[in-house]
Simulated assay, not measured.
Amino acid sequence: MVALISVLHKGPIHGWTSPVVQAGLLVGVVAAAGFVAWELRRAAPLLDVRLFRDRRLAVGSLALLTLFGVQAGIFVVLFPYFQAVLGWSGLRSTLALMPMAATMMLLLASGLAPRVAALAGARATMAAGILLGGAGLALMAVLVSVDGGYPAILPGMLAMGLGMGLTQTPATEAITSALPRERQGVASALNNVTREFGTALGVALLGAVLTAGYRHAIDPRLDTVPGDTADTAREGIANAIDAAGSAGGQATALVRAAQESFVDGWQQAMWAGVAVMAILFVYVLARGPSLTRVSSSDLPRPPRRSRRRP
Rank of each mutant, 00 (worst) to 15 (best):
L280K: 07
A258Y: 03
Q267G: 04
V255H: 05
G249A: 12
A278E: 05
M270I: 04
A278G: 08
G265M: 07
L280R: 07
V282R: 09
Q267H: 15
A257K: 01
F262T: 00
V255A: 04
V274W: 05
V276A: 15
Q250P: 01
I279S: 13
I279T: 12
W266E: 10
A269Y: 08
R256L: 12
R256F: 10
A247V: 06
V263H: 09
A251H: 04
G249N: 13
G265R: 09
A251L: 02
T252R: 01
M270S: 09
A278Q: 09
A272F: 07
L254A: 08
V276N: 05
W266M: 14
M270P: 00
R256I: 10
A251M: 09
A251C: 02
A258G: 09
A251R: 01
V263G: 12
R256S: 14
Q250D: 11
V255R: 10
L280N: 05
A247Q: 05
A258D: 07
L254T: 07
L280Q: 06
A269H: 08
V282E: 14
Q267F: 13
L280E: 14
M270R: 11
W271R: 00
Q267S: 09
W266K: 02
A258F: 09
A269Q: 09
V276L: 12
G248S: 04
L254G: 07
V255M: 03
E260R: 10
E260F: 12
F262M: 06
A269I: 03
A278T: 15
M270H: 07
F281G: 00
A272P: 11
A247P: 02
W271N: 01
Q268D: 15
M277F: 05
A278V: 15
A253I: 11
L280D: 08
M270G: 09
A251Q: 03
